[in-house]
Computed example of a mutant assay.
Amino acid sequence: MRVLFGDGTIAQLGEEAARLGMRRPLVLSTPEQQTQAQEILTLLGDASSGGFFGATMHTPVAVTEQAMAVVAERRSDGLIAFGGGSTTGLSKAIALRTDLPQIAIPTTYAGSEMTPILGETRDGEKHTLRSEKVLPETTIYDVAYTIGLPPAMSATSGLNAMAHAIEALYARDRNPIISLMAETAIGSLVHALPAILARPDDRAARTEALYGAWLCGITLGAVEMGLHHKLCHTLGGSFDLPHAPTHSVVLPYALAYNTAAAPEAVAVLRRVFGQDDVAVALHEFGRRIGAPSSLSSLGLRESDLDRAADLATARPYPNPRVLDRTSIRALLDDAYHGRAPGTSAGTAG
């Protein structure tokens, strides 16, 4: 993987595409970012095969199949993903099927561009896989493209990034270097996000946040994730909740669930937040920067909680605390109502 990081690094796009042998890359984005993606096409000039602007949350297989048809029709020889996790996910899904080279240009703090992980949704369930085929060959981090990210989206996207690093701290296969990256990443975002809320065009704060998100993405790709990511994949893939806001809501509750079983991670987070109860500190931090604090506010129905608990505990996966369906159901109830983390026996552990 090659990373270009800075302010104005997009100027190197044409050179980077040529280095990867791209003569007819397809530019990908969501419908909402089509106008900006058109600017990328302008930069490429004649050296592209146009754009596909239909990327959407949770990488539905049906959308990937539509994009695959465009790739084949235009004989595209590379992929340029402009946007957040939805666009990067689509690029990865195409690369998995074609092995085309990818350039990622992130405009959020999602971190997907740093991982060999792909999550796809089929028949109402989200499934993840790891393959080096989906890891972008180059990521161009250009701070300029994050300046326009609204403060509310910056908050949820930043908390989404922090989730990767927090789970990396207690991952079964963690190591000292990844833990060091995770601590630095979380600290960067804790410092930068309130500044972005106060001054959305603060380039120093935006740079620090993007740096933190880059590190968070590395930790996500390097070690296994646990309960938090499983819950968010369940809520997103099966109930169509928005990706980053769901991470923002669930993270303090998943942390509270695992606190007693993850003393090393808790020690790191106490240093970062300067508080003993790190789950409550994280919950309060989210509220302070304007992130949503309940699953009900995201559109989940209370009648969905039982099915969500069933899906989240249907298959075993690594987590520091043993997964118990009754406790997970209690965790989801707390998250649904936005109670303080640790209120129920389910999250208090």
Rank of each mutant, 00 (worst) to 15 (best):
Ala161Trp: 10
Gly51Arg: 00
Thr347His: 00
Asp334Thr: 05
Ile40Val: 15
Leu251Tyr: 06
Tyr170Cys: 12
Leu215Gly: 04
Ser179Val: 10
Glu284Ala: 15
Gly290Phe: 14
Ala309Thr: 10
Lys133Ser: 03
Arg74Lys: 01
Leu79His: 08
Val280Thr: 13
Ser248Ile: 02
Ile178Ser: 10
Phe239Ser: 09
Leu269Lys: 01
His127Cys: 06
Ser48Tyr: 01
Leu79Val: 04
Leu332Gln: 03
Leu197Lys: 14
Phe273Gln: 12
Val249Ser: 10
Arg301Trp: 13
Phe52Met: 08
Arg206Val: 10
Arg321Pro: 15
Arg271Gly: 05
Ile289Leu: 00
Leu331Asp: 11
Ile177Gln: 15
Asp123Phe: 02
Asp202Leu: 01
Arg288Phe: 14
Tyr145Met: 05
Thr56Lys: 04
Ile103Gly: 07
Ala161His: 02
Ser248Trp: 03
Leu90Lys: 03
Leu90His: 04
Arg75Gln: 12
Leu227Tyr: 13
Ile186Gln: 06
Arg122Asp: 06
Gln34Gly: 08
Ile80Pro: 00
Val190Ala: 05
Leu118Met: 11
Leu241Met: 13
Ala104Leu: 01
Ile289Ala: 09
Val250Leu: 15
Asp306Cys: 08
Gly45Ala: 13
Leu282His: 13
His191Tyr: 12
Ser29His: 06
Ser29Ile: 01
Val268Ser: 15
Gly111Cys: 04
Pro101Cys: 02
Leu227Asp: 13
Leu149Val: 07
Gln36Phe: 15
Asp46Lys: 15
Pro245Cys: 14
Thr246Arg: 06
